[in-house]
Design a binder for these strands. Structure first.
Lengths: 339, 339
DNA sequence: CTGAAAGCGCTTACAG
DNA sequence: CTGAAAGCGCTTACAG
């Protein structure tokens, strides 16, 4: 196997009898250059598989062509598929604009990981996920003039944000249940420290208000961890309250609820209707399949990437994808014929 | 808020009345330099919070201080916690040696993502996970003289590898079950295209051989997807075969099996013993808690990082952590007193 | 339309 | 022990 020569811009200039400037211009498309010259250069590059040295370019332009992605080190089962899809969307769009994605995993509490990322100057911008826990982080990034976008809700209008329509979806799914005659619903969810919990709760409440139905018999049970024991307790509380439906804030809790109900010989949907405010494979292939609100999280990551690239001055030729949701009705909420 | 001056190495040299060379040497610790001079430089740096420009350093040294991590874009629920822990370990060790982690998510089938990573020259080395699916990738990286380590098993002795002791753990857990008198076990697992499936299968078989017990009544059921319907079918097959125990290859399948057994009013551990060859939270907090083989996957990622850094010529002062496993016995395999 | 030259912020032989 | 100078591989005013 022959060692293939690694061309530098100098070599190309020499071989073609032009200046480095010209070669550089042909590649970047910036600055005036003769059509024929450009084509000669591009042909040579193509033929010899020339790849510009990104590091050198970085130094000259003071730009890294890297996006930083900050992931919480302690994310839990519920969030796996969310983060995976997000990362997938971000990576894809980054690649399209010739950026790379640099990750750091930090515990939400302290700034040190973010600090390190900023100080190292290896990224042009940052994508924060679930960073809302600590308002220090956005403040710090602003101060450092580091462009960033947040995945999730934010109260600060200055902050660029992308988010799933959690509240809207929650409201719609709740309303559908109400219209189906399910008026005594339990709402089961995880930690309140995540803003998404609040959003979903708000949607739930608004659906009741909008339809003039009292929430008196609809217990809200939060802070449920993802384990069978905790969920069982919540389910028992719900059953004691005499509910006719259970709405779960996420797919993991929902799958556990399903399993608890089976154990108690409570039939879904005959005795109780069941639905989830976050969809995943595990719900679709359950028995019965479970009604849920479906989001396209990869698209969410995609848009986060686009917004950041836009903020970095990249010319975005594509439209941002609309972030919507669909309520997918499955058997778990079917109203039986006899009703 | 005052704009803080961003110092360059030139500024420091000027302020201190020494040369850039000297400053550089004080920082890197390479080359001879007077103790007092070094301390003056370091003090200045500390005081003014000077951060060397990593990109400039990269260009001068032809080294990026980035590790590339290739993740499959299509990894599934079963693998979430595995990858998360791995990433966590890798990021942590990278940070300790002042490296960053750059990720790309590619579909296992084609090389294009790996190619891109290599050609962009933004990483010094690469960590492959589950890359074994395509032997082209290691071959390509070797050809390009890009250092890499593989997370997972490999037949090629030239390849640097880290892996959990899946076979050993499987053998031990199986043997423990056999010793408990559970001789008719079903082994339930996912896709055979993952080498880990084979490792776990091999451990299972060896435990039987070692103890001189026939596998005649111990059905092996593979290619099970992570959904209730598929798992239910497998469980039914196992029950028809009259098994007294079920060994699951991973935690997701195991949780589903548990739920199926409940539905069928099969009691664990009284009627059937249940155990998993991969541990996770969801097993510990199940009811009953489920016996399983526990691995420290973060440590695995940690070691992958260390091995790569070592291959990159970094001086590793710490020992690699021993990769072991523990069989955690929980109630799901308890032998009742009456037996 | 094209090129010579300076510059990006470091490192590192080489000489002293 | 210390420094002047060249070099890493690009980009980009500036001049023509």
């Amino acid at each position: 196997m022959e060692e293939k020569k690694v061309y530098k811009i100098d070599d190309i200039a020499r071989e073609l009898g032009v200046s480095k400037t010209t070669v550089s211009r042909a590649i970047s498309g910036k600055g005036r250059i003769g059509k024929e010259t450009r084509e000669r250069v591009l042909a040579f590059i193509e033929e010899h598989d020339y790849r510009p040295n990104v590091i050198a370019k970085s130094l000259a332009q003071n730009k890294t062509y890297n996006l930083g992605l900050i992931l919480p080190a302690d994310f839990v089962e519920t969030e796996f598929s969310f983060f995976k899809e997000c990362m997938n969307g971000i990576c894809e769009v980054a690649e399209r604009y010739n950026y790379d994605v640099l990750i750091t995993m930090g515990t939400g509490e302290n700034l040190s990981h973010v600090r390190r990322l900023v100080h190292n100057r290896k990224v042009d911008g940052i994508i924060l996920s679930r960073a809302v826990t600590d308002p220090e982080i956005p403040r710090y990034l602003k101060m450092q003039e580091m462009p960033f976008v947040v995945i999730g809700p934010s109260d600060d209008p200055d902050i660029i944000t992308v988010d799933n329509q959690n509240q809207e979806a929650s409201e719609e799914l709740t309303e559908i249940m109400l219209l189906k005659g399910v008026h005594r619903m339990a709402l089961l969810g995880g930690t309140q420290s995540h803003k998404v919990t609040e959003k979903r709760f708000r949607g739930f409440v608004r659906a009741y208000e909008k339809n003039g139905i009292s929430m008196e018999h609809s217990p809200v049970i939060l802070e449920i961890s993802n384990n069978h024991v905790m969920v069982m307790k919540a389910v028992e509380r719900a059953l004691e309250a005499g509910v006719d439906g259970i709405l779960c804030m996420d797919d993991v809790i929902c799958a556990l609820v399903m399993s608890c109900l089976r154990e108690k010989n409570v039939r879904v949907p005959d005795d109780i209707k069941l639905a989830s405010l976050y969809d995943s494979e595990r719900l679709e292939y359950n028995d019965p399949p479970i009604t849920s609100a479906h989001f396209d999280t990869k698209k969410l990551g995609h848009n986060a990437g686009l917004k950041l690239l836009d903020a970095l001055g990249e010319t975005i030729e594509e439209e941002e994808l609309a972030l919507t949701y669909q309520v997918v009705l499955r058997k778990s909420t079917a109203v039986s014929e006899g009703t």
